[in-house]
Design a protein around this nucleic acid. Structure first.
Lengths: 177, 177
DNA sequence: ACTGATTATGCAAATACTTGCATAATCAAG
DNA sequence: CTTGATTATGCAAGTATTTGCATAATCAGT
């Protein structure tokens, strides 16, 4: 399982609470790793018990206390071991394609409507990524160098979305006939 | 959950055993829906209990008996209901990208080796899909028309793999510096 | 003052998926 | 004649994820 390792990649750079991590997932890994708040909180508990991370209570008035987690030496070693081990190819489970495969049971206009709905989501995602790409383009020196790898993961998102949209045009062409 | 619905899309066209379905998943939906034999057998049992499919024993000598499943009326209705309902965007969890994001903890040559390993898998997949595309291109008339939607799902695979490989070149360029 | 979004955490139950094991026959190749 | 691949099915246990519920304060807008 790799939610554990995704969390550690984020904690390695900076300690944080479950809620912090939820936000970091959305902002930084969201295009290629999606995790819900329940997954994160449950996983943090398990990882804490396993000694991969430690926890410091940040007592706040009024608000519930924040639990700030940080990597332990054992966690760091586990992360490095994972990084050195080959990872499996991504598992793909895309219900839109299953639906399209069985689309002869549906009329074209229904399929078209759904494809277009998905298309607008992908367009939105692409715009956001393009925006981040622009911000990166304006960086210089060490700041830019430090973000080289995250930038490459962003490029994966951009190229992936472009391909999705190019495909959607082929689908639209067919369904509008 | 949609494994259920993927199975129904396959059973709708033709009845089959768990093993048949396993093969159909690999050959037909494999590029966008992956299911293991345990998943399929367990799911068939559940679906049978729920009355979505029925089961006929095909007694064979020597070999274990085949259980041949077919759609029931209730299953057909459930499938149609699912097809008419909008589906969620695909959930993406790609550990290679998590690894790359945290790649500053690793040396470039290690990352490069892993990316190249994945690249060869994607190249292989693309070749297979290209081959099926060629076979489709030679079809004519009704046979071709019947496969129009499966062909579009194949196109998704091809465009997706091409984008993946284009991205891999950017990554290699950076990692070879 | 109220409403709804955001911050912040969590339990419990249900559902889904993976891993490891297990059986057992047929068939093709060396 | 034996080895390994393919056909064919499944249990049991462990791990992971989803869904629904629950609490409670702050902050911005109306």
């Amino acid at each position: 399982m790799s939610l554990k390792h995704a969390i550690m990649v984020l904690l390695e750079t900076e300690a944080g609470s479950g809620y912090d991590l939820l936000k970091r997932f959305k902002q930084r890994l969201g295009f290629f790793w999606q995790a819900s708040h329940q997954q994160i909180y449950q996983q943090l508990k398990v990882m804490h018990q396993a000694g991969l991370i430690n926890c410091q209570l940040d007592i706040q008035q009024g608000k519930p206390d924040r639990k700030v987690y940080a990597m332990t030496e054992a966690g760091h070693e586990e992360l490095l071991a994972w990084l050195h081990k080959a990872c499996k190819p991504q598992k793909i489970n895309d219900s839109l394609l299953v639906k399209l495969y069985g689309g002869h049971l549906l009329d074209k206009s229904t399929l078209l409507a759904e494809v277009r709905q998905h298309k607008s989501q992908h367009e939105k995602a692409l715009l956001i990524m393009r925006d981040i790409e622009q911000q990166y383009a304006q960086l210089q020196g060490a700041e830019r160098d430090n973000l080289a790898l995250p930038f490459l993961t962003l490029r994966r998102g951009i190229l992936g979305e472009q391909a999705w949209l190019a495909w959607a045009e082929e689908v639209e062409m067919f369904l509008m006939e």
